[in-house]
Design a protein around this nucleic acid. Structure first.
Length: 111
DNA sequence: ATCTTGACCTAAT
DNA sequence: CATTAGGCCAAGA
């Protein structure tokens, strides 16, 4: 039972509708600043977790690097656009405006 | 059991 | 500027 994965899922579930965050931001919040990759891997394993909106997590440039892991090739973009986020060429428009940073939005994780 | 491959990111060269 | 190197560690072959 990977505690790290579960923590990742908890954060992802807290991303407000219509906002997005990045793998690295989550890793930083969990005090594993060098484990951004594992956050991505957690998303890959999040198929078992119905309540995890993996489409709201993108890389730090606002690029939809994980879209190929969704069924179909446009689903991730469609999900985002249905929440009011514009996407062009796998790139989120006004990424900075929609970015939700757990490090400033949530209380610091207990040590 | 070992080896490879990643939904990544930062710092150093 | 661009490129590399290192860290992370779960799955698939």
């Amino acid at each position: 039972m990977s505690l790290f994965f579960d923590q990742v899922y908890q954060i992802v579930q807290k991303i407000p509708v219509g906002r997005i965050t990045s793998y690295g931001a989550i890793a930083r919040y969990l005090r594993h600043p060098q484990s951004a990759r594992m956050v991505g891997y957690a998303m890959n394993a999040s198929h078992n977790r119905p309540d995890v909106p993996a489409h709201r997590v993108v890389n730090r440039n606002g690029l939809l690097t994980g879209k190929h892991h969704f069924p179909g090739s446009k689903l991730m973009q469609q999900l985002l656009e249905s929440e009011g986020i514009k996407v062009k060429n796998d790139q989120i428009i006004d990424f900075k405006e929609f970015f939700w940073d757990p490090n400033s939005a949530l209380p610091p994780l207990e040590i």
